[in-house]
């Protein structure tokens, strides 16, 4: 085989540039042939769509007729003065913060528990993970009944521990609706982070803990000095996933409250959906959705730059 390679390379040196060019062309064709199918599908549905969203965002258009009125950037000015949009952006920010503060710690605690010396861990793990496999629509409907004012599980539990005064229709109330929904999002996604953390903990070399044991380290010290630092990269990845996910969140809110009552649970995505497909303001809907894209892009760039700087400092 080696001989063959040598022969071939010797031949290649003597080949004229013409043949080389033909070869080059053939290689380009090969590359195009392999990448083009995926790139076309992706290009049409994702890349082209983003440009078109920006294009539509400059028009007043119902989406049903052909009557497009060019407005320039007027829709964006309208957006800046739209209280409901600010309310929804506020709710998205609240979701980002609460998701970071609840889902990731809870996921970490669950993952750590899976490595503690408890019997029947396999069973625990199976149950812990189940929420993530359920479809969001099913979760939404299930939790509508859990939060129900009359026969809901939550009110039943509160009654059982003597807190009847707290009983209420959780998602019918403007003050509690957003928290009820956020708690459901946490219920759905904490198991997902548990899986990510568990995979990372499995990857920590056992010798590190053995060495720590020899040094007489306490459990808390083991966690603080070995587990946590080694989990930092995955905690950061999870945080990015959580932030981006919270910014584009839609399904559960749409199913549970539709953004109500009185816009108290409105998110950018639910507001965009309502403007576009209920009120038939496709132009303005495009403005909202393009702004969502810019916000997600901006946040991603900031995180990536921050991460780069952090890595540079290390």
């Amino acid at each position: 085989m080696l001989e063959k390679v040598e022969k071939l390379s010797a031949q290649q040196v003597t080949t004229s540039t013409l043949i080389k060019k033909a070869k080059k062309r053939k290689e380009i064709l090969t590359i195009v042939g392999f990448i083009a199918p995926a790139l076309i599908v992706y290009g049409v549905y994702v890349v082209y769509s983003i440009f078109m969203t920006f294009y539509y965002s400059m028009f007043d258009w119902s989406g049903i007729d052909k009557n497009l009125v060019f407005l320039g950037l007027d829709n964006y000015i309208k957006l800046f003065q739209d209280d409901i949009f600010w309310k929804s952006l506020g709710n998205n920010s609240l979701l980002v913060i609460t998701s970071l503060l609840t889902q990731i710690p809870l996921g970490l605690i669950m993952a750590l528990l899976l490595f503690s010396p408890i019997r029947g861990m396999r069973f625990f793990r199976s149950i812990y993970f189940m929420p993530f496999l359920m479809s969001t629509v099913a979760i939404g409907i299930l939790f509508i009944f859990i939060y129900d004012g009359n026969f809901g599980l939550l009110n039943g539990l509160l009654g059982a521990i003597g807190l009847e005064s707290l009983q209420q229709a959780w998602i019918g109330n403007e003050q509690t609706a957003i928290w009820a929904v956020i708690a459901t999002v946490c219920w759905q996604f904490a198991p997902f982070y548990m899986i990510l953390f568990r995979a990372a903990i499995v990857g920590i070399p056992e010798e590190l803990y053995e060495a720590a044991d020899i040094d007489g380290a306490k459990k808390w010290q083991r966690f603080k000095n070995i587990t946590l630092p080694l989990l930092m990269p995955i905690i950061i990845t999870s945080s990015i996933l959580s932030i981006i996910g919270s910014l584009k969140y839609f399904d559960l809110i749409y199913v549970m409250t539709g953004g109500g009552p009185n816009n108290s649970t409105e998110l950018m995505a639910t507001y965009m959906y309502r403007q576009t497909f209920t009120n038939f303001n496709m132009g303005y809907g495009s403005t909202i959705s393009f702004s969502m894209f810019m916000i997600a892009l901006g946040v991603t760039v900031v995180i990536l730059l921050g991460d780069k700087r952090r890595r540079g400092e290390e």
């Binding site: 995926a38 078109m52 969203t53 981006i244 997600a296 892009l297």
Partner: peptide
């Protein structure tokens, strides 16, 4: 890079053009 950027794109940003298409 073009492919990886897709990870952060909100589906809603493509919804109207995809609906029309």
């Amino acid at each position: 890079l073009l492919f990886t950027v897709g990870m952060m794109i909100p589906i809603h940003t493509t919804l109207i053009p995809i609906y029309i298409l």
